[in-house]
């Protein structure tokens, strides 16, 4: 009996908060089926691109087609999951020279503003916390698509890209003049809750 009352009041409380979000739909990133990616690339010596990614992350976003400017997104990344397909490089990246994952096990992105443009393009402003440093960044976003999936759900996906200097986040290991900036891509698919 008591449990039921608690559950009901919780339901009411969550219902209230949803209505405050002006009917925006909440989406959880598809982590189970892994249709979301946190990718990065950086120049190697100025001669080629090195690609890597983070395998362990989670996040959600809210989006209302009638009021896209109210969209928001949160992503948190386990830095220890960095993967550039090379054991010793990954170990180096996890170490003190780069991500220092013992001290900074998590990187986060929290949006602060979403500015829809034309042609499904938008710019997403937010705060990136990486290596213990929080800085504003802006992602160039493309709304990729949305609709029903074949299994009874509703999905929506975006891809956003930004470039920043590693030194801005206190990562100052010398990789050479061509490798000061890293390009970060968030490619996400959310399932409507």
């Amino acid at each position: 009996m008591k449990m039921k009352t608690v559950a009901l009041s919780l339901l009411l409380a969550s219902g209230l908060s949803v209505s405050q979000l002006a009917l925006a739909d909440d989406y959880k990133l598809d982590i189970k089926g892994m249709h979301s990616f946190v990718q990065f690339r950086i120049q190697h010596l100025g001669y080629s691109w090195l690609y890597g990614r983070f395998n362990d992350f989670d996040g959600q976003f809210s989006y209302d087609e009638k009021a896209p400017e109210k969209a928001s997104v949160n992503v948190s990344i386990k830095t220890t999951s960095v993967d550039s397909n090379h054991a010793e490089r990954d170990k180096h990246l996890r170490g003190e020279d780069f991500l220092d994952v013992d001290k900074f096990p998590e990187a986060t992105f929290k949006s602060t503003a979403y500015k829809p443009g034309s042609d499904g393009k938008a710019s997403l402003e937010g705060e990136l916390t990486l290596h213990g440093v929080t800085k504003p960044i802006t992602l160039d976003v493309e709304e990729v698509g949305a609709g029903k999936d074949p299994w009874g759900g509703f999905r929506r996906g975006f891809i956003g890209t930004t470039t920043f200097a590693l030194a801005d986040f206190g990562i100052d290991y010398n990789l050479g003049p061509a490798s000061k900036e890293v390009e970060l891509t968030l490619s996400v698919e959310g399932i409507k809750q």
Partner: peptide, 8 residues
């Protein structure tokens, strides 16, 4: 085990 952690 350090060097082979990634299957190489």
């Amino acid at each position: 085990l350090i060097s082979t952690a990634k299957g190489q």
